[in-house]
């Protein structure tokens, strides 16, 4: 009786969220995937008969490079966001309560302005005659000088790895606006609050006396930060990664407004196919392709980590067995 009651009340409690997920996530996803197995009609609809024509059309040589660029930029943006959020969140969590509320409010403040307006403001700030561009140029010049100072074989290695380009700097070709640099910069700016907040809420629950304990045992502050603080707020970091990476993959406004023709991402392509070419199945296929290219590596990581964990447990058992006679039995 009791179990049945538990089952019913639990079922009732979780039903709304399941329903929500089914209605607004699972079913739409399935519909999108099913579109890819149809052709399109000239007036923007989905053709009736099944066909693989859409998937054949995906063999555009542009797509792999666009997907690769989208992934690369998303990873860059995520890394920068996490890197900046960690010290921020740490600092906020250490502030006294009153100041903390003010700073947390300040982080959320930009949301009171329209996202598109904010991104558009960056067009002005990144103007080729602006001071940000000037800073960027000096940074590039410094890099160039550093490159010149290096021995030849290091230069070759760096060039080979695609981390540097030899030859003199052409200021006309090195504008931030309408380039990948602008897209990464403004994406980091836009997504930063989404990564600070989950990390901060994890850091707020962190027991800072653990840092003192680490220092007490001889660690320096940075070591304690890496070995104690970061592992303890792992969950917050994971949510921050998801909160940044997923929107970054689908990013569309920022590359559209700041990326120019040099930085077209998958989001822009999907928009083009769906709205300009009125080819919904093609747009669906691109979206599916993108989702698969993110989910496959993710699934592999999860699987790999689970295996690693199982191995660790086994190792621990063996060590225990080695120490305690009879434990193995």
């Amino acid at each position: 009786m009791k179990n049945r009651k538990g089952f019913f009340s639990e079922g009732l409690l979780t039903a709304p969220s399941f329903l929500w997920l089914a209605l607004f996530f699972a079913i739409p996803t399935l519909i999108v995937v099913s579109f890819t197995f149809h052709g399109h009609t000239p007036n923007g609809g989905v053709a009736e008969p099944y066909s693989l024509e859409t998937w054949r059309a995906l063999a555009d040589p542009d797509y792999p490079s666009i997907i690769w660029r989208t992934l690369r930029i998303s990873v860059k943006v995520t890394l920068w966001c996490i890197l900046l959020s960690l010290p921020c969140a740490y600092a906020i969590a250490r502030m006294d309560k009153r100041l903390r509320a003010i700073v947390a409010g300040a982080i959320m403040l930009p949301f009171w302005t329209s996202f598109v307006v904010r991104v558009f403001a960056w067009r002005t700030m990144l103007h080729p005659d602006g001071w940000l561009q000037a800073c960027y140029l000096s940074y590039l010049r410094f890099n160039e000088w550093l490159f010149q100072c290096m021995p030849a074989f290091v230069q070759h290695t760096l060039t080979g790895l695609g981390l540097a380009t030899p030859g003199p700097l052409d200021p006309a070709m090195a504008t931030m606006l309408d380039s990948e640099v602008a897209v990464v910069l403004v994406s980091v700016y836009s997504f930063l609050p989404f990564s600070i907040m989950p990390i901060y809420s994890a850091a707020e629950k962190f027991d800072f006396s653990l840092m003192e304990a680490a220092l007490d045992l001889g660690a320096n502050s940075f070591y304690a930060f890496r070995k104690i603080f970061i592992p303890c707020i792992r969950q917050g970091i994971i949510s921050a990664v998801l909160m940044v990476f997923i929107p970054a993959i689908g990013s569309y406004v920022i590359p559209q407004m700041l990326g120019g023709t040099n930085c077209v991402l998958i989001g822009n392509k999907i928009f083009m196919r769906a709205i300009q070419n009125r080819n919904i199945p093609h747009a669906s296929a691109l979206a599916t392709l993108m989702a698969v290219s993110v989910l496959v590596p993710m699934a592999m990581t999860v699987w790999w980590r689970a295996r690693q964990k199982a191995r660790d447990l086994k190792k621990a058992d063996n060590v225990v067995a080695a120490h305690i006679p009879g434990a193995k039995a």
């Binding site: 027991d207 006396s209 653990l210 003192e212 304990a213 680490a214 104690i228 592992p231 303890c232 792992r234």
Partner: peptide
């Protein structure tokens, strides 16, 4: 420490 301050992730 009074609250032991053991590292929970280790």
């Amino acid at each position: 420490f009074q609250n032991y301050a053991l590292f929970p992730t280790m």
